[in-house]
Design a protein around this nucleic acid. Sequence first.
DNA 1: CCTACCGATCGGTAGG
DNA 2: CCTACCGATCGGTAGG
Lengths: 200, 200
Amino acid sequence: MDGAVRKEQICDAAKRLFAARGYHATSVRDIAAQLDLQGGSLYSHIDAKEDLLWALVDRAADSFISRAAAVAARFPDPTERLQALVRAHVEYMASDLDNAVVFHHEWRFLAPARRLAIAHRRHEYEDYFRQAIHEGVSRDVFLPQDERFATLLVMSLVNWFYQWYRPDGPLPADAIAGRFNELILRALGAPAPIGKGKSI
Amino acid sequence: MDGAVRKEQICDAAKRLFAARGYHATSVRDIAAQLDLQGGSLYSHIDAKEDLLWALVDRAADSFISRAAAVAARFPDPTERLQALVRAHVEYMASDLDNAVVFHHEWRFLAPARRLAIAHRRHEYEDYFRQAIHEGVSRDVFLPQDERFATLLVMSLVNWFYQWYRPDGPLPADAIAGRFNELILRALGAPAPIGKGKSI
DNA sequence: CCTACCGATCGGTAGG
DNA sequence: CCTACCGATCGGTAGG
């Protein structure tokens, strides 16, 4: 079996356990047991337990940012861009909920340098939302009473998603994103996209 | 020194450390050290480390629910009630941010029976918000496209608060609650409370 | 409330 | 990848 494949299996097991129990309540032996290995055997594939957490958090940050960058490049219109950002966020979270949970809950257990790097990436990611909202305000398509709180509303809505979303729930992720966008556009004082046909 | 006082000091130390590092990354010796005690000495005041977590989470749940009950009793009008619920939530979180952080981040490390009890209390608490919104919809003062998502928006906004709020930030908690309420009423399709003077 | 300790488990390593 | 182990630390207890 390929070494890279094995490493991916280890990351997957760590992801499940970190999401379910948290980083500190998961031992390397717990992770190894998921692959029918002894605890020490993991260390032919990894250097430290924290590297597994880093791999997961780093990957989530990459996914969020690269999707946002693609959306920003594709949609010049602020309304369409904001809606697509929300949709991309929700759909990524839904597609890899465990990774999203680890990203939001466990990143603070990274060593300081890595924690700082994630804080910066998180800020960079939020900038895509801030920027879309700011442009909408500049063009008078969004009329929030407070631009900063408008951004906070959007981030609260999409970030809290992982707390209640269940894959076997009644609504698929894209329908949830649609509902989110209706609420967001209303809160922003934008015309609701009723009768516009399928939204982005 | 009174035993109850000492126990409160232990809870306070646990609260700070659980909020900063998380439950599993905090040892009983860490807590004891905050009070210049030896690790074992804590056990003249407590029976188990988990009891400290329970005390904090239980107290937060009580605070949320008792404040919501008082608000519900005081404000029959759904709009006023919803605004007051938001305000009470934000002000409690701001007044004891560490406890709010422990409540949201660490409750899942409780043993199953206690975890279940908290899940029920959480649901009971959200019912105050759901009910206020439902009554507003019944009376046509709220016109959301989806009542369930309207509630989700409110809960997302107020629950995510602890993630970014800093006591030394530019806005006091009651001003933040005011901004939240403006956004919420807009998202609900209610008339914005502009020119109504001080809101609740 | 301290000293001294319990058995269990932790992340990680050596040697094969 | 396993066996066997390292020192450190965990939550908790006994006895004073």
